[in-house]
Design a protein around this nucleic acid. Structure first.
Length: 382
DNA sequence: GCCACGCCTCGTC
DNA sequence: TTACGGACGAGGCGTGGC
């Protein structure tokens, strides 16, 4: 059995475009007087004035250790000496509009385009550059200046023979960077980088790899792939090994719709009984069913997510017999899942632990509905 | 024994 | 010292049908 993918024979030229500190940069563009000040874009949970986490920050704030994911209170204390620091709530509609402006410029340059997120995309420029990295470099500089001219946004670009290395290269020089890694330089470029530069490798995997004595791509590429499979499972193990050698045969493709629709909220105060959450649950069901209607999809599996006061997660779900688009059925099933989840233990010690901080509803097993109702909708609605 | 499916947790962005 | 959102996908495990 061979675990290792072969390098694709055809040389491709892929560009990864990543907008710098995107949400915070959008805020600078909207209000140029903020430039030069630490900007922190936050997700306020609404529970208390400063409850929530940092979504992103500009480089001035990052110099003070303010990065995405940290609690807003921590960010405030880190920036205590900077009286000019500004904390703003996310305005996703504005960022989405700005992103679309930039993406429409970028789409015009690629043979193929793949949207990854509001701040990131790939284009395949193999044909338009005759697979020549020097031409790709020139094209990338044109893309950077066009995006800046049309939107005011700066971005960092990585040019490489595949998506994996292009992504790593785009992250190599930031902000406003351009890194070109031709095929023959891939191994050398990667060898001394730390393993946490591999997309998808976060703190937990990094810690595990470090404990195994693998801190760099070079060290990882010398590892027995069977050992990686043993430690991380077949799929992840093979991915890690191939990544360490810069192998990635995934094509640039128009990505499809998401495979789930979910909403999660933070409760105004912790709840220990399901009845205390019925109002919030109704609100969540209404939100997700509206999103499903908007996207013209029906759902078959309904999930309820509970995050407890100690941030431990509990998820429970139920799969319906047939796909559904109906709010009443959704709420009724979600309510029964919630009731069961809250009553699952008669052990007082366990029940006492069930102080729910956040509540979520998730729809999966989605199917294109295009306005057609199912029998269950008919039954549910009559 | 194999496979598909349902359910749940983990991990990342 | 601590503080703590929201969204999504991957994958492991158990179960039941064949």
């Amino acid at each position: 059995m061979s675990l290792i993918s072969r390098r694709s024979d055809r040389t491709r030229v892929i560009v990864c475009i990543d907008f710098d500190y995107f949400y915070a940069q959008c805020e600078e563009i909207r209000n140029p007087s903020l430039r030069g000040r630490p900007i922190v874009v936050c997700v306020f949970s609404g529970r208390t004035g400063d409850s929530g986490v940092v979504s992103t920050s500009n480089y001035i704030a990052r110099n003070y250790g303010v990065k995405s994911g940290i609690p807003i209170k921590v960010a405030r204390s880190k920036l205590a000496d900077r009286g000019d620091a500004i904390f703003l709530p996310m305005d996703i509609k504005f960022y989405a509009a700005k992103s679309e402006e930039a993406m429409s410029v970028i789409r015009g340059f690629g043979d193929k385009y793949e949207y990854v997120g509001l701040d990131e995309c790939f284009i395949d420029v193999t044909d338009s550059t005759n697979a020549d990295f020097e031409q790709a470099k020139q094209l990338s500089m044109t893309i950077k200046s066009s995006v800046f001219q049309k939107t005011g946004l700066t971005c960092s670009l990585g040019v490489a023979p595949n998506k994996l290395v292009a992504k790593i290269a785009s992250d190599f020089q930031k902000p406003d960077g351009l890194t070109v890694v031709p095929r023959q330089e891939v191994e050398n470029f990667l060898s001394r980088l730390r393993v946490d530069k591999i997309p998808g490798v976060g703190p937990k995997t990094t810690k595990k790899l470090f404990a195994m004595g693998m801190e760099t791509f070079g060290q990882l590429s010398c590892c027995d792939p069977f050992r990686l499979v043993e430690e991380f499972g077949r799929t992840s193990g093979i991915c890690l090994y191939n990544a360490s050698k810069g192998i990635d045969n995934e094509l640039v493709t128009e990505s499809g719709q998401t495979q789930q629709i979910g909403k999660i909220i933070t409760l105004k105060k912790d709840a220990s009984r399901s009845t205390e959450m019925y109002d919030d649950l109704q609100r969540l069901c209404r939100l997700v069913v509206d999103l499903a209607t908007e996207r013209q999809v029906a759902f078959k599996t309904i999930g309820v997510l509970l995050i407890l006061h100690d941030l431990e997660n509990i998820t429970r779900s139920k799969t319906l017999k047939v796909h559904c688009t109906n709010y009443n059925e959704l709420y009724s099933v979600a309510k029964s899942i919630l009731d069961e989840a809250m009553d699952w233990s008669t052990d007082d010690a366990v029940s006492a632990k069930l102080r729910v901080r956040r509540l979520g509803v998730k729809l999966t097993d989605l199917k294109n509905n295009s306005g057609q109702n199912t029998i269950s909708d008919f039954i549910g609605s009559t």
